[in-house]
Design a protein around this nucleic acid. Structure first.
Length: 479
RNA sequence: GCCCCCAUCGUCUAGCGGCCUAGGACGCCGGCCUCUCACGCCGGAAACAGGGGUUCGAGUCCCCUUGGGGGCGCCA
């Protein structure tokens, strides 16, 4: 036993990597990293009906986007079937398990009866002492023989000590009638064989922890440390639904959120470090600890995510943000596809790229997401003549165009095309005309960006360059 | 129905018996900055679910109620 921390993220490949799974993965990753250990990835694909290769790809893609890496190759639980069956035989031999001939119909009947009587809905153990053996006239399953008395105690790093009465435990099925091992057995065997030291997963697995504890005990194996973290709820406090945040992480990527912001936000959901709100990944690794994880469920709040994302948009290193933007463009949602494609094309041009980089700091502080960054920077990629948005059209009334004509002449005469020179010239022009600066700046902005919103107009003009700027103004003079 | 868990501003949370006239963040409201929108800065409204105990003293410990959540598969 090396003492090295080994965690695992063990999703079942029945759909995309949803936000709760992403957080579970993050916690496993952070915990392992914090302790200088490693996280492994295991695909719980024992349900052959529902597991798909597409889902495996989606999960791996999601983890990669979030930059949560794992040690070695992903392990397929299904591939370990023989080993699972071997352990089942072992349990059969030691008397910890037995064959049961009850059919699903009989069990359903039992449950219904129990419900009607207000009793716990458990298997009544009728096959326990029958001494059934394989060749048999009915299909057989293998059941675990739960202890008749005593308690199952779980020492959980998050939940504390949780006790279940042994007689409240079911004789769970270890092997199905078709000869395949079930989840609870497979998990125990795999976690043991993979030498997992810490099992970190959602509280929805708490009762499984008790079941699995019984199996560990029967096998004489050491139980890994457990941590059952609270689930994430929707804004209404109920279970996370598609409508809220139960989207695949790919959807968050498309919406233009940054991986560092997702990690930051997800980590803060249920975990805290004093009054701190913003964490770099290094800080997360250094400070993350299970004992600071609360027990109550947290609601997913898009607004807060947006705010955290906005902070990262503003504070990421310029080059990195640019990389993120380029990486995002191909993943833009359908509505943004045409613009994203044009942006990609234009960004290949060194001049456009330079303009974009020059304005990036001014643009980023106005954008909470990469999507908004595309929106704000669109005027850099749009072809002339610019299409004006509704507000810009309203700003460019006839008198405004007339004013722009004069201003155009003034700007054309500028000896130097710099932000300071333009600033000075426009202010002087406004003063001469007895106009407030806004009365000049807004039409100018509308003509040059096609929008009523943009970074400082003088800054924009400088970045665009004399030729392009004057041409854009001219486009609006003709009428 | 049975078992388990949870409960501080709208939301995420700090608080681990006296530091609490309960702190921070998001959001909200007001103001400053200002060529628009943001950013930034200043200020404000906003919470210990209820009831019993324990204690000199309870947001902090115990019990009950209420409210929420999770589980009760030959799914994982």
């Amino acid at each position: 036993m090396s003492g090295k921390v080994r965690t695992r993220f063990a999703p079942s490949p029945t759909g995309f990597l949803h936000i709760g799974g992403a957080r579970t993965a993050l916690f496993n990753w952070l915990y392992a990293r914090h302790h200088g250990g490693e996280m492994l990835l295991r695909i719980e694909d024992t349900d052959r009906e529902r597991s798909t290769p597409e889902a495996v790809e989606a999960i791996i893609g999601g983890l990669k986007w979030l930059e949560l890496d794992w040690a070695g190759e992903p392990l397929s639980q299904f591939s370990r079937r023989e080993r699972h069956l071997e352990v089942i035989r072992q349990l059969l031999d030691s008397g910890h398990a037995y064959y049961c001939q009850c059919t699903p119909e009989e069990l359903a009947e039992m449950r219904e009866k129990a419900r009607a009587e207000g009793k716990p809905m458990r298997y009544d153990r009728r096959c326990r002492e029958l001494g059934l053996c394989p060749p048999h006239d009915r299909p057989l399953v293998v059941r675990f023989r739960a202890p008749d008395e005593g308690e199952i105690v779980i020492d959980d790093l998050v939940q504390g000590t949780v006790t279940f009465a042994a007689d409240a435990m079911d004789d769970l099925v270890l092997m199905r009638a078709d000869g395949t091992p079930t989840y609870n057995l497979a998990v125990v065997v795999d976690d043991h064989d993979m030498e997992i030291t810490h099992v970190i997963r959602g509280v929805d697995h708490l009762t499984n922890a008790a079941r699995q504890k019984m199996i560990y005990d029967a096998l004489g194996w050491e139980v890994p440390k457990m941590a059952h973290i609270p689930l994430i709820h929707g804004p209404d406090g109920a279970k996370l639904s598609k409508r809220h945040g139960a989207l695949g992480v790919e959807a968050y990527r498309a919406m233009g959120y940054l991986p560092e912001a997702m990690r930051n936000y997800l980590a803060r959901l249920g975990w805290s470090h004093g009054d701190d709100e913003i964490f770099t990944t290094e800080q997360l690794i250094e400070w993350f600890d299970l004992n600071a994880v609360g027990k109550s469920p947290a609601r997913f709040d898009f607004t807060k995510l947006e705010s955290v994302n906005g902070w990262w948009m503003r504070n990421l290193e310029r080059e990195k943000l640019f990389r993120r933007f380029l990486d995002w463009l191909p993943h833009a949602p359908a509505e943004d596809k045409p613009r994203a494609e044009q942006a990609m094309k234009k960004l290949a041009d060194a001049d456009v790229r330079a303009r974009f980089m020059q304005l990036l700091d001014a643009l980023r502080e106005r954008a909470k997401t990469l999507r908004e960054l595309l929106d704000l920077s669109w005027f850099l990629f749009a072809d002339r003549p610019l299409e004006l948005n509704a507000k810009a059209q309203k700003i460019l009334k006839d008198d405004a165009r007339a004013m722009l004509k004069e201003l155009h002449a003034r700007l054309s005469a500028l000896p130097e095309w710099t932000e300071a020179a333009i600033d000075e010239a426009v202010r002087a022009f406004a003063e001469e005309k007895g106009l407030k600066l806004g009365k000049v700046a807004q039409p100018l902005r509308a003509a040059v960006t096609g929008s009523n919103v943009s970074p400082g107009i003088f800054e924009v003009l400088e970045a665009l360059g004399r030729e392009e700027s004057l041409a854009r103004i001219e486009d609006q003079l003709a009428e």
